[in-house]
Design a protein around this nucleic acid. Structure first.
Length: 559
RNA sequence: GCCGGGGUGGCCGAGGGGUCUAAGGCGCCGGACUCAUAAUCCGGUUUUCCGGGGUUCGAGUCCCCGCCCCGGCACCA
């Protein structure tokens, strides 16, 4: 048994997350957390709301409420939503959590004392009206290259070129429209170059890292790292702890990643086991896995490990990261302002949670961006979840229910072809298992679908509806094996669609919950009484889809 | 612009020098079956792998040039 830290990227909580955020971090992580627990591993699964930074501060100003009021509201909401999505967090925390705030301040003070942080004066755009320094992207103006009027201080959305705010024509503050001035300010910098050698060693020796993350990180390290500012002039954030840093806060990114640690601390504190977090974080054998979107790779392969190394406290470095590409919505990027996409609150109003989980997971963008379309959603639910899996389970259970007095039939010895079938299925379970071990979630789920397809093929070939007329024993054998395949599905589907897997498990006559992946290799008990079967899934008709889209419109009108 | 990843049939997608005249799925066509949710199963159907050049006995697979998409580039998170 090993110790595992399953860490899902912290959603930025200026709004409800959309489906892309969900599949990229939290949902993928949930599958692995559930899987590892089934395997008997010791797992702590954490994430939380990332609630500091300029966008939230600005959003709160616009709504005329305090940032804390804003994040309180969203944090509560999102926490509940994740529960409804059946995300099995051990702790879903937040960056306003006092344990986090305190930990971050002490952590950075330590880095300062160890000589990894220095201060420097720089020039920054400042809005006199708003009385605040403006991050580059809060300045708008005309692009000096393509003369697009809405270019931001960091980049022009029209021609894609990188910019600096000073080069914009007619720069203005994105909040009040005023003209920013340039003002000197002091900031604290994290001396990344000092850690370059150790980081290079870490990345190079970490053959567990996926090739894309590894190549990118090594390339960045070869090109050389630059020091990185860790303070901001924001009011909304964790107060910087350095001498003379009053009024400054820690840059969100540099503190939110430490949340993986503080959420673990909080989790064990709540259980009255104050020191147990150390068994995970200060243990070189702990395997920590980070579920992130592709934009997030360098933060988890370079900056986060750098912070951990700099602390000198022997925190366990990321064992690996599992990054996804993006989910697109009908060919476009999700966009809150333009309402392109589906949000995790809306989705739950439209279809059962397991339909969403299944569809998102079987289309998980592991190699390239995946384009969400309603047709693709419908196809995955209808053809794979309902027709292949659902129908196999239903035809098996109803056959047993009707012909064998609702008991899994008794067999003395399996015939050769039935025995062979059992072994074939066991091999497929092994394959699904191996794929999950490598975090190939999508492929693993596809393999499980093919187990159901194999069950269908087997039933057609052995035709127990004929056998039962001539040779009841033979039919019993076939149905016993089919019942085993249903059991396999109940166990292996659990990490992906826990509610439905649970239903299948109970329908097979088991009490309680599926707790052990090993059950997928154990034949069911003959004579076990099954429940009256009911279809676990149902098809989405064109009509259903139409209604859902209409409902979506209504939800959006309401809000 | 620089760095990393990617471009495979109508669509989704495996495959990273020979077993690729390219897996699997969806769709479509035909058949079987009737236990089951008009489901299931079997067979067929389609691409020569973004474009061009090269290396090699042999290239989706390696190299070079170009085009396109995604991400990063350090003050968005």
């Amino acid at each position: 048994m090993s110790k595992w830290l399953i860490c899902a990227a912290w959603p930025y909580i200026n709004a409800v997350p959309h489906l892309g955020t969900l599949i990229g971090s939290v949902l993928s992580a949930d599958v692995i957390a559930r899987y590892l627990r089934l395997k008997g591993e010791e797992v702590v699964f954490v994430s939380g709301s990332d609630e500091h930074g300029t966008p939230i501060e600005v959003e709160a100003i616009k709504l005329k409420i305090s940032p804390k009021e804003l994040t309180d509201k969203y944090h509560q909401l999102v926490k509940k939503l994740f529960e409804r999505w059946n995300i099995s967090f051990d702790n879903y925390s937040r960056t306003e959590n006092p344990i986090h705030v305190d930990f971050v301040r002490r952590f950075y003070l330590k880095l300062y004392e160890r000589g990894y942080i220095y201060e420097k004066e720089i020039e920054m755009p400042f809005c006199s009206q708003c009385q605040m320094f403006l991050p580059d992207r809060f300045i708008e103006g005309e692009c000096p290259y393509c003369h697009y009027k809405g270019a931001r201080g960091d980049q022009c959305d029209s021609c894609g070129r990188l910019l600096e705010p000073t080069r914009l024509i007619n720069p203005r503050c994105n909040i009040c429209g005023g003209k920013p001035i340039i003002k000197r300010t002091k900031h604290w910098f994290f001396d990344l170059p000092k850690l370059a050698n150790e980081l290079y060693k870490y990345v190079e020796n970490n053959e567990k890292l996926p090739p894309n993350a590894r190549n990118m990180s090594l390339a960045m390290l070869r090109e050389g790292l630059k020091p990185r500012a860790i303070t901001r002039d924001n009011k909304w954030g964790i107060p910087a702890p350095f001498p003379g840093s009053e009024g400054k806060t820690i840059y969100v990114w540099m503190e939110a990643v430490l949340g993986y640690i503080t959420a673990t601390i909080e989790f064990f504190n709540r259980r009255g086991e104050e020191n147990r977090w150390k068994e995970f974080w200060l243990n070189e054998d702990t395997k920590s896995v980070y579920f992130i979107g592709k934009d997030n790779i360098p933060f988890h392969t370079i900056i986060f490990p750098a912070l951990l190394i700099a602390s000198g406290e022997n925190y366990v470095l990321p064992w690996t990261v599992s990054s996804t590409e993006y989910l697109l919505f009908r060919g476009e990027k999700f966009s809150k302002s333009r309402r392109v996409g589906i949000w995790i609150d809306e989705a739950l109003e439209l279809f059962p949670v397991d339909y969403w989980r299944f569809s998102l997971l079987i289309n998980r963008p592991e190699n390239k961006d995946f384009n969400f379309t309603w047709e693709a959603f419908k196809e995955s639910v209808n053809s794979h979840l309902n027709d292949t899996i659902g129908n196999f389970i239903h035809r098996t259970l109803t056959f047993i229910y009707k012909n064998f007095g609702s008991k899994i039939p008794k067999v003395n010895n399996l015939f050769e072809e039935d025995e062979k079938e059992v072994n074939k299925v066991k091999g497929m379970v092994q394959k699904a298992e191996k794929l999950l071990d490598d975090f190939k979630i999508r492929e693993s789920l596809i393999t499980i679908v093919s187990i159901a397809a194999e069950g269908n093929r087997y039933l057609n070939e052995r035709a127990p509806w004929d056998l039962i007329k001539t040779n009841r024993d033979k039919a019993a054998q076939v149905m016993y094996v089919a019942a085993y395949i249903v059991k396999v599905l109940a166990v292996t589907l659990y990490p992906f669609i826990p509610t439905s897997a649970q239903k299948i498990w109970n329908m097979l006559g088991y009490e309680g919950v599926t707790r052990d992946w090993g059950e997928a290799y154990i034949l069911p008990k003959a004579g076990q009484q099954i429940k009256k079967p009911k279809p676990v899934f149902k098809k989405i008709s064109d009509e259903d889809l139409k209604n859902a889209l209409q409902k979506l419109e209504e939800i959006r009108q309401r809000n």
